[in-house]
């Protein structure tokens, strides 16, 4: 097993994260057809303990858990895909694992264009829309002239 290069790892980290954060319905719409595969680990629901840091920067503490679903698959041609996604949607986890596997095959450019690019654009759009609403509630202070200085 050859070690992936740091840039390959960064790319894979990025697409796994985009797939995990995708709204399940959108992923299903963008990737309706699933290739033949074997389940190495059938979709399984569990939790991850989320940690914070004391004072935001100090020692870690346990904040509480979140639900996650994980899945691992192998395509007929051998590529192995993994997923761990927020929530309890088993189809989401299976689809994300399959997309991860497909991204390691010749299908990668197609998946990148048809699935990942729209997901990334939509995520950026949703984020920008919240940020724009927040920006509208930003306070612009102005100083009023006061008695003695007037």
């Amino acid at each position: 097993m050859s070690q992936p290069s740091p840039s390959e790892t960064a790319l894979r980290r990025d697409w796994i994260s985009a797939l995990a954060k995708a709204p399940p319905g959108r992923l299903a719409a963008l990737l309706p057809d699933l290739p033949a595969h074997e389940m190495l680990r059938a979709p399984e629901i569990g939790t991850v303990m989320v940690q914070g840091r004391i004072g935001g920067t100090g020692a870690p503490f346990n904040l509480g858990e979140m639900t996650v679903t994980r899945c691992s698959v192998r395509l007929a041609e051998g590529a192995v895909g993994h997923a761990c996604v927020q929530g309890r949607d088993k189809a989401h986890a299976a689809r994300a694992a399959l997309a991860d596997a497909l991204m390691q095959t010749a299908a990668a450019p197609r998946i990148e264009a048809q699935v990942l690019a729209p997901l990334r654009a939509e995520a950026a759009g949703a984020r920008a829309s919240r940020a724009a609403r927040a920006a509208a509630t930003r306070v612009e202070f102005f100083t009023m002239l006061r008695g003695e200085d007037a």
Binding site: I45, T47, V48, V50, Q51, T57, P60, C84, A131, A134
Partner: peptide
């Protein structure tokens, strides 16, 4: 919750990198 297996623990979240909806300070104006 007790029926679910725990798969792991997250890295501590980075609240300085939060995408803020709200952020106020009562000690500093600017």
């Amino acid at each position: 919750r007790t029926t679910l297996p725990r798969f792991g623990t997250s890295r501590p979240v980075d609240t300085a990198a939060m995408a803020v909806d709200r952020r106020v300070s009562a000690t500093f104006k600017d």
